[in-house]
Design a protein around this nucleic acid. Structure first.
Lengths: 236, 236
DNA sequence: GCGATCCCTCAGCAACGGCTCAGCCAATTC
DNA sequence: GAATTGGCTGAGCCGTTGCTGAGGGATCGC
């Protein structure tokens, strides 16, 4: 898995232990330095102590809501960006205005890969110094996370949101077999409870769009009984 | 047998004494430092005392399930990865979340060689410092565990899952005779109860694919009445 | 509010892989 | 050199896996 350079420090705030752990662990593996808090008070304290580069903040916390936390942070002179976690059915107006600063939001239940991508995007915008590019390349395949666009050999390819996420996950892990369970865990929302065969369907869609259009080599390979693999000619 | 460098400490947790012993012994032979526990409570205590690098954890334990154990561990600030053991048919592909973070899972009944390989893979991912490569080499034969791919003299060779596991076992033990019983014990699932002649079949398949395609030296040799041996020219 | 898109499920089909068996060949023993 | 044992391999059966097209239901955008 591609690591973030340089290591950024994140503050994760959510009162549900499961979500908090899920996020913390995934973000650590993604290369971030993670500090976690379970409520607004602890979050404010942790922000003082650790001075993170970004916070992932649930809007619904037991003691105060995420907006209040943000306001208090800003008042204390902390201007790092925030990625809010909101329930899907939150009213529109509650969510609007969230993205004004460098901020962004992700709705629960989210896909792990998606959260990581969003955090990277926000960091990229606020710390443009890094040579961390928004474009992932594997052979003649390009995926531009900012423009949400995919090209193969210069030719733009139209993907649905899920197809895009799946391809991004594959491209982040070239030349490595990914099992259907693994793909499900990273690409689909964490509460999805259909079965893994949906991955087959989406692999099929992707192939049709990126491996069939050009008469180039097939990039997506099936490892029967094991998983799928995105082939890259140049060895890393 | 190739040793793990440096020696990693593992915590093995399973309530069935047979499985626990089987795993502990094999992992010790594979070069790991092993501590075992029979239930969640003991596992938590052992984690405190021994601070392992990884845990092998049955999801079905008498006192609490594997997820609870994991959550409690993480809450206590222990962030080592976990390889879960799950039953094959308890709605297998409905169970998700086992592969997030650096974690992975193996279904029961498993093959010993497979478990060891998975553990190594997880450790490799979480401790990338080690120069422990995912590629095993014997002469001009290469086996890439991450890509699940085999090459001889640069030429990619397609193997079925069982063929792959068999070859990996042979390649992990070059220049050493392995009896059919030994191979059966390591490569096949522990509840397999056909007879050892199946090994002959698979050796035959492997020869056809790796020793016949090129006109190079035959790597797989038969020691009549004893077993098989994968021969390597360069002694290391 | 309507159409288009997208997500997901399902079922049919084809290909593959796991395993067994039988017949043959090779090595070994007497 | 005959008999015996051990190993090799082709054939075949059968369950499993993966691919794909079709369709239903939900959602999004206009």
């Amino acid at each position: 898995m591609k690591k973030t350079v340089p290591e950024a420090k994140l503050l994760v705030v959510d009162d549900e232990p499961n979500i908090r752990e899920l996020l913390s662990t995934s973000l650590r593996v993604a290369g971030f330095d993670v500090v976690a808090a379970a409520n607004g008070r602890d979050a404010l304290a942790a922000a003082e102590t650790h001075n993170p580069d970004l916070a992932v903040l649930d809007v619904m916390l037991p003691d105060m809501d995420g907006f209040t936390v943000t306001r208090r942070l800003r008042a204390a002179g902390r201007h790092f960006p925030v990625v809010f976690l909101t329930a899907r059915d939150d009213t529109e107006d509650k969510v609007t205005g969230l993205t004004v600063g460098g901020d962004d939001y992700v709705t629960k239940p989210f896909s792990l890969d998606e959260v990581v991508a969003r955090i990277r995007a926000v960091l990229r915008r606020t710390h443009p110094l890094e040579d961390d590019d928004a474009v992932i390349r594997v052979d003649d395949l390009e995926l531009d996370d900012d423009a949400h666009e995919v090209r193969r050999g210069g030719e733009t390819i139209d993907l649905s949101p899920t197809e895009f996420k799946l391809l991004r996950y594959l491209m982040m892990n070239p030349n490595r077999v990914l099992s259907k369970a693994q793909i499900l865990d990273h690409v689909w929302e964490y509460d999805f409870n259909g079965d893994a065969s949906i991955v087959e369907s989406y692999i099929s869609y992707l192939r049709r769009k990126i491996d069939r259009s050009s008469d180039a080599v097939a990039l997506i390979q099936t490892k029967r009984g094991v998983g799928y693999l995105l082939r890259s000619a140049d060895k890393r």
